[in-house]
Nucleic acid binder design. Structure first.
Lengths: 125, 125
DNA sequence: CGGCATCCTATGAGATACTG
DNA sequence: CAGTATCTCATAGGATGCCG
C-alpha cells in the first residue's frame, strides 16, 4: 500500500541479512584473520585475538560455519587438530567489506578523537 | 612485533569505525529512509518505522547528527517543524551499503529459511 | 510537534571450571 | 587441542509519562 517503502526496504533487508551473518563482537575480527586465505587452527586464531574466550570463539566459528562463511576441517589425530578457512562465500564478502573499510578510512581521520578507536592499526588516509 | 597482524587490523579497524557510525537497531533503517535525498520530518520518519519509540528515534538522529551523517534543520514555527536529511557524508555511505546489500541479495535466497527475514521486502536476485 | 527523563528488561557477552 | 556447561553481568534497547 505504501509504494514509497519499497526502495528502502529492498536496500535495508539484504543489509540486515549480511550484518546478521557477520554481526556480533568477534565475527568480523575472525574473518579479517582468515582473509589471508590460509587455513588456521583454533588456538592460532585465539592467539591473534587475545581477549576472546574459548566459548566465544567456538560459538562464532560454529555460527559462521552454519551460515557457510567458514569451512572446518578436522584431522583425526591425537592431539586433535582442526583447521578453519574462509569458504568461497566468505571470500566473496571481502570486497563489500573493503568498500566499507575504504569509507571508514576516508572519514575516520577527519575527527581527531576517532584515532583512539585505532590503537592497533596504522590505517592512513 | 607481529607483522602478520597489520593487514587484518588495517581492514578491521575502519570497518569497526563505520559500523560504529551506523550500528544499533535503527540507524540503518533511518538512513535507508533518508536515502531518497528528500528532507523528512520527525513524525514522518516515525510513521515509516512503526516500531520505533520517540526516544530511540531522537537518540539515533542525534547521534547521527553528531557523527555528521544527518543534517537537522529547525523551523521556528508553532507548532515546531524539524527536517532531517542525509549530509554529503551520509550520502557517500550509500555506495558501500549498496555493495553490502548486493552481497546479501546474492546470498540470502540460497537458503529458503532466510526468506523469513524479509517479510516486508521483495528483494529478488 | 518534536524531544527528554526515568525506570526497567532482555540479550549478548564474559568468567570459570570441566572434558573427549 | 579444541571444545562445552553454567552462571553472572553489562549494556542496548524499550515503556511510560512529562514538557517547551
Amino acid at each position: 500500500m505504501n509504494k514509497i517503502n519499497e526502495t528502502d526496504e529492498k536496500l535495508l533487508c539484504p543489509i540486515k541479512y549480511t550484518l546478521g551473518i557477520v554481526g556480533g563482537k568477534w565475527k568480523l575480527p575472525i574473518i579479517c584473520i582468515l582473509s589471508s586465505g590460509e587455513p588456521y587452527r583454533f588456538n592460532y586464531i585465539k592467539k591473534r585475538l587475545p581477549e576472546i574466550t574459548n566459548m566465544m570463539l567456538t560459538q562464532s566459528l560454529k555460527e559462521m560455519e552454519a551460515s557457510g562463511m567458514v569451512g572446518r576441517k578436522q584431522f583425526n589425530e591425537v592431539p586433535p587438530h582442526v583447521e578453519y578457512t574462509l569458504t568461497e562465500k566468505g571470500k566473496s564478502l571481502l570486497k563489500p567489506l573493503e568498500s566499507l573499510a575504504e569509507w571508514g578510512i576516508e572519514n575516520m581521520h577527519q575527527e581527531a578523537d576517532n584515532l583512539s578507536l585505532c590503537e592497533n592499526c596504522q590505517a592512513e588516509k
